[in-house]
């Protein structure tokens, strides 16, 4: 377990990635084997992959190209395989940056057909809610997956609520007919002090999504395992021990008086 806080360098890199997401640049993480990120390359997006490949080949580092700003290209959402790949990269980054990473899964249901069309409309509708470092992909036929680097449970929940509000205000259509799909949103979070593999995070998020779908009413659920791990609540036993001495002292003062 590594419970260290993010280093200044990691915060700086994250900040640069955030900013890079607003510009036509490609971000490449130089990760190495150490506990700290080695560096960040920002390359003009106009440089072609064929031009870049020989340059990158000369680097002795393991490089991880990060798509920016989101996974949506030419109106088509990337698939689940892409999501797994990106999630694995982000979770590696969690170990190095010490910043958490949240995965949000959402589905739209209640319609017989045209689920993928609804997911596409949902992707467009939630675009204003996306942050530059977010990664959006499709999730099966009727859903979306959103990787939110840097988001812990509280922030992820808040952002899920924003997304839900945006989708509720969206006029979905199936052909020429207006439809109102039921939403379900499931969140799982990975923290640096206990990183988990991408598949496990996806499983956790899927369990929460299933719970939300069962509840209905556009519910948002978050991973209970992560929630309890995230808690540092002072226990009853700890309180009892902490208050023992003041009580003794108060009793003594009362007796003396």
């Amino acid at each position: 377990m590594n419970r260290k806080a993010p280093s200044d360098t990691a915060l700086l890199y994250r900040s640069l990635e955030e900013q890079a997401g607003q510009h036509p640049v490609r971000t490449i993480r130089l990760t190495g084997k150490g506990s700290e990120p080695l560096g960040l390359l920002l390359i003009n997006a106009a440089v072609s992959a064929s031009e870049l490949a020989p340059i990158l080949a000369g680097l002795r580092f393991t490089d991880q190209t990060r798509p920016t700003p989101v996974g949506q290209t030419e109106g088509k959402l990337p698939d689940l395989a892409w999501l797994r790949q990106q999630l694995a990269m982000e979770l590696t980054q969690v170990q190095q940056s010490k910043l958490p990473c949240a995965l949000l899964l959402l589905t739209l249901s209640g319609q017989d057909t045209g689920a993928s069309a609804l997911a596409g409309q949902a992707a467009t509708a939630l675009t204003p809610c996306l942050h530059p470092v977010d990664l959006l992909s499709g999730y099966h036929k009727n859903g979306l997956a959103l990787i939110m680097p840097g988001a812990a449970v509280g922030k992820a929940r808040k952002r899920a609520e924003e997304i839900r509000a945006a989708l509720r205000n969206t006029a979905f259509t199936k052909g020429t007919t207006g439809v109102t799909p039921t939403l379900a949103l499931g969140i799982a979070v990975c923290h640096a002090y206990e990183t988990i593999p991408a598949d496990q995070l996806l499983t956790l998020a899927e369990a929460e999504l299933a719970r939300a779908a069962k509840i209905g009413n556009d519910a948002i659920c978050q991973s209970a395992a992560v929630r309890s791990e995230d808690s540092c609540q002072v226990t009853v036993e700890e309180r009892a021990q902490l208050w023992m001495q003041p009580r003794k002292a108060a009793r003594a003062a009362g007796i003396a008086a």
Binding site: R3, V234, P246
Partner: peptide, 17 residues
């Protein structure tokens, strides 16, 4: 005060090493 100081230390220790 005791409880809140303890809670602060617990968070700093548990989450921030």
């Amino acid at each position: 005060s005791l409880t809140d100081a303890y809670a602060l230390i617990k968070v700093l220790h548990t989450r921030h090493d």
